[in-house]
């Protein structure tokens, strides 16, 4: 297995960090993955899990390209410049990079949390062969609304009381202000675009293999809102093996999700 870290430019000219995992020639398949990362602090807390799964896929013959969105990780740009559309656009640019490594390669996507939602949206594109969604965020607006809780906690810490409640924070976002949550910013464009995301209808209409993995105790109870009728979707529910919120137990190599996903990949991608 060979690994290469490099920068590439996205379509707005910003340098994005990328990491390419290339399998040994003897076992190399014609399948490649682009990994789409979570956002906010969730990215940092799950970074090693995606690194380890990329290495596992490469050890099994699949090429993997991981990358950082503009304004995240080691990429150029500020977080507050980004929204759903910039993430979709960056993912498409990353796909082109993987394709440039090997023109014959079939492109598959794997996303985690908001990255899974973005992967779901991008999977509508004909170039995508299959998509794996680990804990996708179905209702992005609800996700952001819940995320604002971090701002409230900080108000309590600094001012010992809530000065602006969540509704007031939302109003500020809608009026164009950016709201700081744990050092990240929720902006007007991110919020507005989040309200328009309809991942369910995309997943229902695409005609390609989809693996959807959900952890059982998801606080958003997204499975209740699922109205997925697409027979191409394999749905796996499992006990949570890792977390992207409060870090109490460190598990950089979650066995069950890795093994079940790898089996699905081997069975569905040829």
């Amino acid at each position: 297995m060979e690994e290469e870290a490099f920068f590439f430019r996205n379509n707005s000219g910003r340098k994005l960090f990328a990491f390419f995992h290339s399998p040994k020639e003897q076992i190399q398949t014609n399948q490649g993955f682009v990994f789409v990362s979570p956002t906010f602090g969730e990215k940092t807390k799950t970074y090693r899990i995606l690194v380890n799964f990329a290495r596992l896929l490469a050890a099994n013959g699949y090429s993997v390209l991981r990358f950082d969105f503009m304004g995240e990780g080691d990429s150029e740009g500020e977080f507050e410049e980004t929204d759903i559309e910039t993430r979709i656009s960056d993912t498409k640019d990353a796909i082109k990079i993987l394709k440039s490594k090997n023109e014959l390669i079939k492109i598959n996507l794997l996303g985690l949390r908001l990255g899974a939602t973005i992967a779901g949206i991008v999977s509508d594109d004909n170039i995508i062969n299959s998509v794996i969604l680990w804990e996708p965020i179905i209702d992005v607006r609800a996700y952001l609304y819940d995320y604002l809780r971090g701002n409230l906690s900080n108000q309590l810490l600094v001012h010992k009381k809530i000065i602006l409640n969540r509704e007031q924070l939302v109003n500020k976002i809608l009026s164009g202000e950016k709201i700081n949550v744990d050092g990240w910013y929720v902006t007007n464009s991110l919020w507005k675009q989040a309200t328009r995301v309809d991942i369910i209808s995309i997943l229902n209409r695409i005609d390609k293999p989809i693996l959807l993995v959900k952890f059982e105790d998801d606080s958003f109870r997204q499975q209740e809102r699922f109205e997925i009728v697409n027979k191409k979707i394999t749905y796996i529910s499992m006990k949570p093996e890792f977390t992207w919120n409060e870090w109490k137990y460190y598990n950089p190599f979650p066995q069950e999700i890795f093994q079940k996903t790898l089996i699905w990949v081997k069975n569905n991608l040829s």
């Binding site: 690994e3 990491f19 090693r48 870090w247 109490k248 137990y249 460190y250």
Partner: peptide
Amino acid sequence: HGIGDSEGELKEGIITEH
């Protein structure tokens, strides 16, 4: 080592013990 993109591995375990 064992963090981010680097080689090596840290064992799973209680975070405060790490």
